[in-house]
Structure formats: C-alpha cells, structure tokens
Nucleic acid binder design. Structure first.
Lengths: 207, 207
DNA sequence: TCGGATACTGTATGTACATACAGCATGACT
DNA sequence: AGTCATGCTGTATGTACATACAGTATCCGA
C-alpha cells in the first residue's frame, strides 16, 4: 500500500470536508468543477485509484454514494448532539425544547451511555464540586428523569441558580451536599428542583 | 408552528438515521420502499410538509440533497475523530498511524482546540493524577509535539508503562511529578519519553 | 356538513449523475 | 526506447432521482 499522491489526497480531503459541511458527498461533476477539470472522467479515474487503495467506497449506480473510509471511521461510534443549556431555564419547561445556547457532540462510547431527549449539558460555574473532581468551567452532561440515588451528583436549582450537588439520603430524608468546605452543606431536597443526574464530563485544559 | 405528526417524525428520524449511518441521505424512492409506499409521490408530499415546517431542506434538482435541520444542527461544531491508543505503543513510531484501538469523536468547541494528526487519546489507569482531578478510567486527550511547559500535565513512558505526570521545572531542570502522595515523586525528565501534553478530558459517570 | 389538512396510489418526465470508450500528455523505472 | 502508472480532455449513454399532474380516502376542526 503506497501512500497517496498529492492530488489524490486533495480530492479525498475535498470529499470528506464536503461531506462534513454539507452532509452529502459531492458528485463527480462537482468534484471536477472544484478542481477545474473539464471532464468528469478525470474524477472517475482518480476515484478508481482511491478505491483500489481502499480509501474510498461507493455503491455502483447510486448518486452521491462516495464515502471516505478512514481507518478511524470504522472504529467510530455513533455521534449524538446534546444541547448545551445556558444560565437559567428556571424549572424545566417540560417537553418543550429548551433554548439551547450551544451543542455538545460526542460519540456514545466515550460518554458511556446513549443520550435521550432528556439529556442536556451545562457548563459548571464555581468550585462547589471540587471534592468530586469537577472543576469550574467543566462541561457536564446530565440526564433528567431518573430519580437520583444516594451518592449521585445532581444539578439543582438553589435560589434560582443552578449548582451541582451530591444527592445524599440520611435517615430516610434526602439532602443535597456540596463537595467543598467553603459551600453550605446539606440542603433539604424537597424545596429544590432537581434537574438531572450526572452522566459524563468534558474538560478542556486551561493554559 | 404545530408539532410534527407521528408519520412525519418517523420519516424525519429515518432520514437522519440513514444519514448518520450511511453518510448519505436516502432518495425519495428509498424512503418510499422503507415505509412500503408504492408511489414516490407519497414521500414528496411529506417532504413538502416537513420543509414548510422548517425541519428539512433540500436543493432543488439535486440527488440525495435532503437534510434534516435540527435546531442543534445549526449550533453544531465540527466533529473530529481522535484515535484512542491502547496499552503500550512504546516510544512513538513517528508519523506512522499507530494502531488505534478505538475512536473518540468530539466537537472541537467542547475540547477547546483543533486536533491534528498528533492528537491522540488514552484511557487513564491508576490514580496518580488525582491531585489534578484526573481519575482512573478517564479518557484523556493529548497532543504530541509541543514542548511541555512548567505545570502542564504530560503522558510519559516510565519503565515501559505510560502514566500521567505533571511537568515541573526546578532550578532549570525538568522533572515529572505525580499528583498523589502514594506515587513516587520527581522523576528526572531526561530519562523518559514524553508522549504528549494534556489537552482535554472525558469522563463517564460510574454507577 | 363542508372545507381543509394529512396520507396516500399511479403514471410520467426531464435532468442530474455515474460510468464506459477512446484518446493524449507526462514522468519514472528498467 | 519501451512499458506502466498518473493525470487529464471529450463525447456518450443508461439510469437513478426529484418532481409535476391527476386522483382517492380518512380524519378533524369550524
């Protein structure tokens, strides 16, 4: 397996970029137009080579069926989009698609579960959960719905502001506990709106 | 804006799933086949409705040009595939695509940088970096290449095994330091292979 | 009870696309 | 010089596809 030619790599990249950007692969004539070819056949021969080298597949006769087969692509899991909710959607406007202020896209293998319509993400503000190794600025993925169990981390509305807390059950009563000595402890859970339980976390390095 | 009909939702889901799975949107006739319609026109009218409701776009005349316009899709960032490297690729076989044992796909906004060919991911084993809030089982994204700066977290090969350490410079000399009292401290950096510096982290909740 | 939307069947048709056949350069290796 | 891969132009052609026109049946709100 020889490496790809410069031209071949360019074409491969073009196809992949177009697919990612537009959601559909370019046609032979679109590729020809992009590279200034005056004959769609120039593309055909390139595609033939790329296919022989195993970088490209297509189903014969089908329109726009070119697909880049990167070695990673085969290992790739399904990618899901999780809405990143902003500051304060007080309560939770049931079933309404809440205004997303961003979008977190991850493969389901890495987050370890399959998100549903009840999954959302939130950016952590403050260090209230540093004891559980969640930092200011982290992106936290939560799932609304399931009743939290003892020891799970939950997002809750406290005085109209959202914070992360640990859900603890003590003598049959539920409390929320901050994992940082600087923060107030043990808030009775009944008075609060619990928005979801912690499912995953994404952190970027601060330089 | 009324919600979608059950049938409309089904068709929309089918299109989206096919697009994600195959990398190309189904044709009208393929959709018709899927739902048992004996006329491609049944699809046409559904598409017309979905387009009016703003859930679908297509460029007229173009084959396989249907695209689902979810509100999240617009916010969606570019998704990149990062190879998940396994146990011990001792050293780093320069420029060779190292055997990936998995694939981490994330949008570039969430990881906060644009991965390159020198980016890879590794699953953390052990609690040597608990002081920097990195836990056993976490998925860590690293970038090979840039010389580490003081205080940055790096992946290094120590006795043929990979661990995460903090890169510290003391009196002009570089050391690696574990962030856990149980682990040995301050290893001279010269004797080790530094594989990359910490860029991002993905953690799944343990139940 | 009379629209008006949804949810189809059935038949066409123009064109968007993949792909085949027939060349002609260029460079690289033997 | 000769062969072989790359990298094209130019012309066709069959078919895969989007889409228009003409109906029919059901359900629902006014």
């Amino acid at each position: 397996m020889t490496g790809l030619t410069r031209k071949q790599q360019e074409i491969l990249d073009f196809i992949q970029n177009r697919q990612r950007a537009d959601g559909m692969t370019p046609t032979y004539q679109e590729i020809a137009a992009q590279f200034g070819f005056r004959s769609p056949n120039a593309v055909t021969s390139h595609v033939r080579l790329l296919r022989r080298k195993g970088c490209l597949t297509s189903e014969t006769g089908k329109a726009r069926s070119l697909r880049v087969t990167s070695p990673l692509q085969k290992l790739r899991d399904r990618v899901v989009d999780i809405p990143l909710l902003g500051a304060i959607p007080a309560g939770f406007p049931e079933a309404t698609a809440p205004e997303a202020e961003g979008c977190v896209s991850v493969d389901i293998g890495s987050v370890g579960f399959t998100p549903t319509r009840n999954t959302f993400a939130v950016r952590v503000r403050g260090e209230s959960m540093i004891g559980r190794h969640i930092l200011d600025g982290d992106l936290v993925v939560l799932e609304r719905g399931p009743d939290p169990r003892h020891g799970q981390i939950v997002a809750a509305l406290v005085d109209g502001e959202r914070t992360l807390k640990t859900y603890v059950v003590k003598n049959g009563k539920a409390y929320l506990k901050a994992e940082n000595p600087k923060y107030p402890d043990l808030i009775p859970a009944q008075e609060l709106v619990i928005q979801g339980v912690f499912k995953a976390l994404i952190r970027k390095a601060r330089d």
